[in-house]
Nucleic acid binder design. Sequence first.
DNA 1: GCCTCTCGTTTGAACCGTCAGTCAACCTGA
DNA 2: TCAGGTTGACTGACGGTTCAAACGAGAGGC
Lengths: 209, 209
Amino acid sequence: MSTRARTKPQRDRHQEIVEAAAQVITDRGLAETRIQDIADRCGVSPGLILYYFGSKDRLLVEALTYANDQSYLRTSRELRKLPAASQRMDRLIELSVPGLLPEYSLLDEWALWLEIWVRALRDPEMAKERENLDRRWVQSISEVIRYGRQTGEFPSDAADADDIAMEFGAMVDGLAIQVLLNDTVMTPSRMHDICLDVARRLIGYDGTR
Amino acid sequence: MSTRARTKPQRDRHQEIVEAAAQVITDRGLAETRIQDIADRCGVSPGLILYYFGSKDRLLVEALTYANDQSYLRTSRELRKLPAASQRMDRLIELSVPGLLPEYSLLDEWALWLEIWVRALRDPEMAKERENLDRRWVQSISEVIRYGRQTGEFPSDAADADDIAMEFGAMVDGLAIQVLLNDTVMTPSRMHDICLDVARRLIGYDGTR
DNA sequence: GCCTCTCGTTTGAACCGTCAGTCAACCTGA
DNA sequence: TCAGGTTGACTGACGGTTCAAACGAGAGGC
């Protein structure tokens, strides 16, 4: 925990490696990710990676959760800035569609979800993390709903906010998979339309699109 | 001279290997599947696998599509036996929930979907196959809907059958992922309830549950 | 019936690149 | 000098692929 290092601009190495790992996983896929790739990416020797993480697996799990974490925090922060619940909902939807916004596409993030899921199939630690990450996303949907009901923007007579969020979140997952995999029928804009439509139907607000 | 083949290829070797491969992938996951495992599973030498398929990758893609294919055909055949559209729909839902029916759980089939998706991320051939497979499943939903409308069992004033099927199918995918990964909140029976509920809401029929 | 030739099938070991993980030595700043 | 950070060559195992040889079922000849 030195405050500063001179010869090398070393920030927290741990952090640096995790970020590099997340990028490599995004680029090449989990199965094709080598320790050497990660080492190259942050200009370091392979040995050092093991020095910090002990094993490749530990690093991979941390990288996957870290990337998702960042993505969540970024989105969450952005939503909180918007005053109206309907704006938050619409923006949340916009940000959920892979490849809809070119500058901010979330394509990578969705690809990482797939990797997380496959790994969670057989890695209990990953399975547990996956549930935490997922729960948080669903909660941020239901928070928007509750927020809208509190401010009177959304009607309060509809179903339980958590139930709606779960159902809606599941549909977003399913649609996102198709869009991510370049389905010819399910395009980003079609997914966007469907999501807006379903959200309005479930929550009961009208959009000004 | 027990289990050994004395004569010519007992059955189609190609077929035999594909089936063995699908089982191994199901058991150990795509990433952990070795040619040796597949060879062991059908009592054959590793060399023979390559003799028939040229490369591991070609076999894997074929095995993944084959397994999904079988699962689809089995389901499709079963649905066609049921007279009423509502029965077909309910059964289709039942069969879609991983682990709901102990004897017939589809757990494996869903796990294979995950593998297909990840592979499709970077393998164009797999991506194309994936779209074919997926389209077929969605179509079998919309066929049930159209069938019900034809027989007057379902109202015809609701949305387009294809749109409903797509939306519903996406939600099933999303929910199935959670159930498959042993989510503590999203249990098989909860998924089942949600699916029945949403199906009735979207299609507009009432269940006799 | 028996031999033999042939060709598709099958084997098993060898080949060879790859890669996670190890280790002894080497910084470098305090 | 000391300690933690860093290196990079090394290793040991692994696993896809190759290949030369063996096998065995039929066809045809005798």
